[in-house]
Every structure is written in structure tokens, then in C-alpha cells.
């Protein structure tokens, strides 16, 4: 059995989804209902949980690749097992309806008739609430999506997924302080998620870029960003995004610290101190050397280093070229 099917496919790459959905006939045949006649079925009911996980992932993959017929079959199987009223089934059905909707009007109808009715019946139906917000987001009604998410988070403030989504939405609206707040909430729930630390670093960096007039604020954001990237590296040694970000931030910080040599003393609010220039420089060197190593080993496809995507390696190359040009000048 392929393990691929047991992992959530929504996060996978398009190729993975395509490969999964191509297995649809096989999986559907294998999981076909082969129930024994009555007395034996009572005695030997061997039902595996994996079957249903597989079917659900297959459903999503089929919808992604446009294989609506197989998706319908998966949905029917799941419905016959778990019943019409199961929360997850309702959400999956909504997903299917969205996929086969022909135009914007039909999608709108799903939103108002299907989702809103379900939520009026049972406001605690989290899968449907999330589905509705996702639909609003993909219809680019960002304001409504944000309002929905805020309402959801009032009810359930320990949902990391929703916080992360809200952070993304705020970020897309350039509302950096809000996005930062949301990402910090995510970290409070999953404190060791290195990708979230790096993401927070990125948002802090961009926030500093956006208010580059106020030097102190920018400096604070940049040094925070630097620390976030460092923490991300501490948690995951070879995390490319964190090294990339570290290099960007440290270059920026060096230039900022050069302008004014006056040391920024630790201020009264007890905020984290701004690192001194020597530390930032050595961090920059560290990031550069690590990026070079990743680029070398990743592009040669060395064993254990082949997890990086081509686009990421190209981006490193571009960054390194850019900085080396600067040095030559």
C-alpha cells in the first residue's frame, strides 16, 4: 500500500496529486464493499481506519485534478459509511459541490444556501465554518473571510490552523502588526514549529521595510526578525528559508548599523537588545556559507540533500550573485 495516500494530499505538490488521482480506479476497486453475508459479517467485521483516510485523500486529489467522477464515487462511499449528517462528510460534500459548480453564480449559491443553512442549524460545525471561510477567501472576499475567521477564533482561540490563515490574510492586506500578532499566537500553540518562526521573521522583515522612515521601529523589527530566523535555524539545521531570511536581514541590519554608530542601549521597556555589528556580520557570513553549501549539495543531488526544490535553489543562486556583485563594486 502506498503511504502517499495516507498523508493529506492538499498540501502536496500538483504532481503528487496527479499521481494519487491516477490510482483512483485501483483504490476504488480495492476498497469496494466486500461484506460477508449476515451472520458472518457480525462475527468478522474487519474495518480499517486507513481505508477511510485513503478515500478522503483520494477525493481531494481527484477534485484537484478534475476527476469529478471518481470524486463522486469516493464521496458516495464515505457517505454510506458515515451518514449524511457527519460534519466531515458535510464539509467534503461542500468541497465537491464547489468543484463542480459551473460559474461564479453557482458558487455563490453554495455559499448562501448550503453553508449558511448548515451553520444556522449548528453553529459549532467547525469543518463547515472553515470551508466557508476558505470559499470566501478563494472568491477574494478577503474582508468577509477575515471577519469569519475572527469570529471563529473568538469561539476557538487555540486553533493554530485558523490563526495561521488569519495571519496570511492580514499579510495580504499589508496589515503587518496584525499578522505578527496572529503568528505569535500560532507559536504559542505550536512553540517548536520552525517554519512558523521563519515565517514570523519574514513578516517582521517586511514590516521593517514598510516603515523604513522610522528608524528605531525598523531597527527593532529587524533585530526581532533576525532572532526569529536564528531560532528557526536552531530548531532545524538545514532550513533553507531561514538561512535565506537570515542573510537578507543581516545584510540589511549591517547597512543600518553602519549609518549610525551610536549604540542603541537596552531601553527601559526591557525589550530585546539589538545585536552588535560584529555578531550580525558573523551571522551573515554563516548564512552565506550555509547557503553556498546547500546550493552545492542540493544542485548536485547529494544523498540527504535532495529535498530542496529547484526554484528555491535558483533563488539562492540569485541572492548570492546579487551580493557578490555588490562586493565587487
Amino acid at each position: 500500500m502506498s503511504t502517499e495516500l495516507l498523508n493529506p494530499s492538499s498540501s502536496g505538490r500538483p504532481e503528487t496529486a496527479l499521481r494519487i488521482s491516477q490510482q483512483a480506479p485501483d483504490v476504488l476497486k480495492r476498497t469496494a464493499k466486500t461484506s460477508l453475508p449476515f451472520p458472518l459479517s457480525v462475527l468478522f467485521s474487519s474495518e480499517k481506519q486507513e481505508t477511510w483516510v485513503e478515500l478522503e485523500n483520494l477525493l481531494v486529489a481527484c477534485l484537484r485534478t478534475g476527476d469529478d467522477k471518481s470524486a463522486r464515487l469516493c464521496l458516495d462511499r464515505l457517505t454510506s459509511r458515515f451518514g449524511e449528517q457527519n460534519e466531515r462528510i458535510l464539509a467534503l460534500r461542500g468541497l465537491y459541490e464547489e468543484a463542480i459548480a459551473q460559474d461564479g453564480k453557482a458558487v455563490n449559491a453554495i455559499l448562501t444556501t448550503y453553508y449558511d443553512n448548515l451553520l444556522a442549524e449548528d453553529p459549532t460545525n467547525m469543518p463547515i465554518r472553515k470551508r466557508r471561510i476558505a470559499l470566501l477567501k478563494s472568491m477574494s472576499k478577503t474582508g468577509d473571510a477575515i471577519a469569519g475567521l475572527v469570529e471563529l477564533l473568538v469561539t476557538s482561540p487555540i486553533d493554530a490552523e485558523s490563526w495561521a490563515e488569519l495571519a496570511d490574510l492580514y499579510f495580504s492586506q499589508n496589515l503587518f502588526p496584525q499578522a505578527i500578532y496572529c503568528l505569535e499566537e500560532v507559536l504559542l500553540i505550536v512553540p517548536n514549529a520552525w517554519n512558523m518562526h521563519a515565517r514570523l521573521g519574514e513578516v517582521l522583515f517586511l514590516s521593517a521595510e514598510s516603515n523604513s522612515n522610522a528608524r528605531d521601529a525598523a531597527l527593532k523589527d529587524l533585530s526581532n526578525s533576525l532572532k526569529r530566523f536564528c531560532r528557526s535555524i536552531e530548531l532545524c539545521d538545514n532550513y533553507l528559508r531561514a538561512f535565506y531570511g537570515l542573510k537578507m536581514v543581516s545584510s540589511k541590519l549591517i547597512s543600518l548599523l553602519e549609518v549610525e554608530t551610536k549604540t542603541v542601549s537596552k531601553d527601559k521597556t526591557g525589550e530585546l537588545s539589538v545585536p552588535d555589528k560584529a555578531t550580525v556580520e558573523s551571522l551573515n557570513e554563516l548564512a552565506t556559507s550555509k547557503l553556498v553549501e546547500i546550493l552545492r549539495k542540493g544542485s548536485s543531488g547529494e544523498h540527504g540533500w535532495d529535498g530542496y526544490e529547484d526554484a528555491e535553489l535558483v533563488a539562492i543562486q540569485a541572492l548570492l550573485d546579487q551580493t557578490s556583485q555588490k562586493v565587487e563594486r
Binding site: 533576525l226 536564528c230 536552531e234 545585536p275 551571522l283
Partner: peptide, 12 residues
């Protein structure tokens, strides 16, 4: 995040 730069530099 306090003193993390030093830790990273030492570690790597």
C-alpha cells in the same frame, strides 16, 4: 530569543 545569536554562532 534572548542571546540566540550567540547560541547559533557557537552551535554552527
Amino acid at each position: 530569543l534572548e542571546g540566540i545569536e550567540g547560541r547559533i554562532l557557537e552551535q554552527l
